[in-house]
Amino acid sequence: MRLFLDFIPVLIWALLAVVLVVVMLLASWVLRPHVLQNSEKTSTYECGEEPIGPARISYPYNYFVYTVLFVVVDVMGAFLWLLSSSNILWSDATKYEVVWQVIVFMLIIMGGIGYVMKMLPQSFLNGEETLEAYRKAKAERKEEPHAAGGH
């Protein structure tokens, strides 16, 4: 309960943020010219180009790795925040064992991130590999008529 009361300044800030957004939206509504909306006005602006196709397309799966990386760093940050909000890293009773825990923890996670950074370029569909597979398939097909006796 006391902790909740400590966060009341944060709530006041959140309220101010909401009020700011509402005031800005209202002000822009009051200030802007209210002209007739037509399809030209409401269409998506794409640097003067005609919009082609829907905006909601499925992105390549490779971008999924970036969000997993974000979650990993997020969780790592939460645990380091717990460490930074305590005094166990500089109280003599605990600092020698905790520093090893922190080093091992960081090494494991940094190793994982380094592995992903190393493997990420290989996981993208590379044009050269596609070309190689294509040439191989083409060569195999050229071989086929001779193997079958040819017509």
């Binding site: 997993v68 923890f105 994982g112």
Partner: peptide, 18 residues
């Protein structure tokens, strides 16, 4: 450390899927 290992597992799994 177990949490760190689970995190690394998720990273390796994402790469394996890709």
């Amino acid at each position: 450390q177990m949490i760190a290992l689970i995190m690394v597992t998720s990273l390796v799994g994402a790469i394996a899927l890709l």
